[in-house]
Design a protein around this nucleic acid. Structure first.
Lengths: 377, 377
DNA sequence: CTGAAAGCGCTAACAA
DNA sequence: TTGTTAGCGCTTTCAG
């Protein structure tokens, strides 16, 4: 402590001394630099002010382009800042202002095509607003999701974008974000009952058009590989499946619907089981491209022709759907656009001045991308 | 200002008053809560201290489990914190300490299988150390890379992991990070000449084993689709290609090597051009799975049999290599492990106490994953 | 084991 | 247009 005070006093004395004593800027600069290096001190706004013998506030204002500072002074200050290799301390600024120019994004997984595209979209918009992005993975667990929210809130992010993990059943953490007044957008996998901004895919209609497509091509007994129903998107896809059947005068058969078939392995196993028997169905509509892929591989292994004998349609339009043969018909969710939309909505709330902001729900229309795997039975 | 001071005075008076006056905790609590809600004030350490009539420092210490606080006091303080719904302000703590528990990651693209796996690996390790992760995309541009570095430095991240963008040619920004004493690890795409931690793939040996594999299967005139040579990884893959040929007694033919063929489209076009003529080569070694895919599609379109007439090998072991048929032989770079290794190395430097830390270079061995596309001509 | 108090670097209200 | 000054919430040194 004593040493520190002593240092401070000497420091001030020296800087004042050299400021007054030496006329040549170069000399002053070199002394200043030596001083900084010696003390491993980072250059602050105060240093610039002392160096130019002006007020700290003037420097602060100049650096943030405040209108009330003359262009001349601004230039001088900015040049000096550069000369002294000044780096703003965002930590201090954020702390002082009680907020950051950072938004948080919580996704189940980053290495999933859908989410990495969403992130791409979010980043694009965040960049435009000059905000940075901190990304958290929940890894589909409730625990990590809680921790992520906790961290983001503690770090006073300006807003949060979230897609709920598969494991999460309680919306308490989402509620607490909203109660704290932190802008929030739920996207894709959401708690419907929570009053917040939401960006959704129209999963019902996406599934509807997928199944309708199969029916139009002559397929009749269509299997559905569903996800867990407690997640809204899978529930909706299931509804769309049923609706398409009913609208075409077909009766949905519960025995053709299988919950929790989402991975390649699950799709493979289940297909082997169902299509290995007599009186087999003639099509598969999978809620995931991966289980659709598993189905295709199983069908190939059983020497069943796609699309001749069995049609297959997936969901999400993963890149590989276009690479395999036959190409897998799938539903494109416009994932990049979804990220952008969610981010724009978030900024709408962040930048909103009005006290009573009313949250919105936006729904994006998915598109059926028709490839060979469903082209007629 | 005056109003604020007045508020402060009244605030203190009231809290002191209620602290002294009321005995029943419940009553006190409800008053406190009402007060906080009314003022939209977030609960601070000081509030807890005032509430319990103890020192701020004690509260601070208790909450961070300082050893010199009795278990009894700790429990009391923690319970109270919970009761008052206290949220730590990381902004203030970080600012005070002059550092954060955050590491920065700069990658060219997030929606590339390799990088999303690296991120996964980094996140895993960061989690273990209880650090959070801020991810920046350079989108393969120099400008974004600079901005990312700038932001990360201003936010006083504890360390930076970076893989250089395709556009970046000058290492000035990397140097400045190191000069500032911020721990840094370059991975995959690096500036060799910069003295820093590095994690590399042994691209030379990866390419070597890929080409050796083709030769062993009887292929002789092997085309190489290369990336830009100024990027170290593509240079190394090219070297590996040549070395494998030479070691097998074959003479590398410059006319079979094509720079900057990395995408599916480029691979398709170039393959059409080369293999459409008489006296065509009999294999392709692509520095990217995507150009290898393009080659496969082109060969199919020309009715050239894979692997019967032409063998194809890619690089990176993208997931789709396993889904297409024939499966594409490729080189696996252990991307998740790379992320973990890079992150561990970073933490080694971050947590290092020793003044003169000597940076390390680690090299990971890639593995050839043999599939049908190269199984014999 | 606990308390008192300084101060991190910056912003913004108020004064000039 | 510029200067003065208080204080954001926390940690930490020093003193008991």
């Amino acid at each position: 402590m004593i040493i520190f005070l002593l240092y401070k006093i000497i420091y001030n004395a020296i800087t004042t001394y050299i400021t007054n004593r030496f006329d040549t800027k170069n000399n002053l600069l070199s002394l200043f630099r030596k001083h900084c290096v010696l003390k491993k001190k980072t250059v602050t706004i105060d240093d610039i002010a002392r160096y130019l013998n002006i007020a700290t506030s003037t420097v602060s204002r100049a650096l943030s382009d405040h209108h009330s500072i003359s262009d001349q002074t601004k230039k001088l200050i900015k040049d000096t800042a550069k000369k002294l290799n000044y780096r703003p301390n965002s930590l201090a600024a954020n702390f002082r202002k009680g907020k950051t120019k950072t938004i948080g994004l919580v996704v189940p997984r980053i290495n999933r095509n859908f989410f990495s595209n969403v992130i791409h979209g979010v980043e694009y918009v965040a960049n435009q607003f000059e905000y940075s992005l901190i990304i958290c993975q929940s890894n589909e667990t409730y625990k990590s999701e809680l921790e992520a929210i906790e961290t983001l809130m503690n770090n006073r992010v300006a807003g949060i974008l979230i897609s709920i993990s598969r494991e999460t059943r309680k919306p308490g953490h989402i509620k607490s974000v909203i109660e704290k007044g932190i802008p929030l957008v739920q996207f894709d996998r959401v708690f419907e009952e929570i009053k917040s901004n939401k960006v959704l895919n129209d999963n019902l209609n996406g599934a509807y058009s997928a199944v309708k497509g199969l029916i139009d091509q002559g397929y009749r007994r269509i299997v559905h590989f569903a996800g867990p129903y407690y997640i809204n998107i899978y529930q909706d896809r299931y509804e769309g499946y049923k609706k398409a059947l009913l609208d075409s005068g077909l009766t949905p058969d519960e025995k053709l619907v299988f919950e929790n078939i989402l991975t390649r392995e699950e799709g493979y196993e289940k297909t082997m089981e169902i299509f290995g028997k007599a009186n087999r169905p003639d099509a598969v509509f999978a809620a995931s491209d991966f289980s659709a892929l598993g189905a295709m591989i199983a069908l190939k292994d059983m020497n069943i022709k796609i699309p001749g004998e069995v049609g297959v349609v997936g969901y999400a339009n993963e890149p590989f759907t276009d690479y395999i043969s036959p190409g897998l018909t799938s539903v494109d969710q416009h994932s990049v656009e979804m990220g952008q939309t969610a981010a724009r909505l978030l900024f709408e709330e962040i930048l909103n001045e009005d006290e009573n902001y009313v949250p919105k729900t936006l729904t994006l229309k998915p598109d059926l991308v028709i490839r060979d795997s469903s082209s007629g039975g």
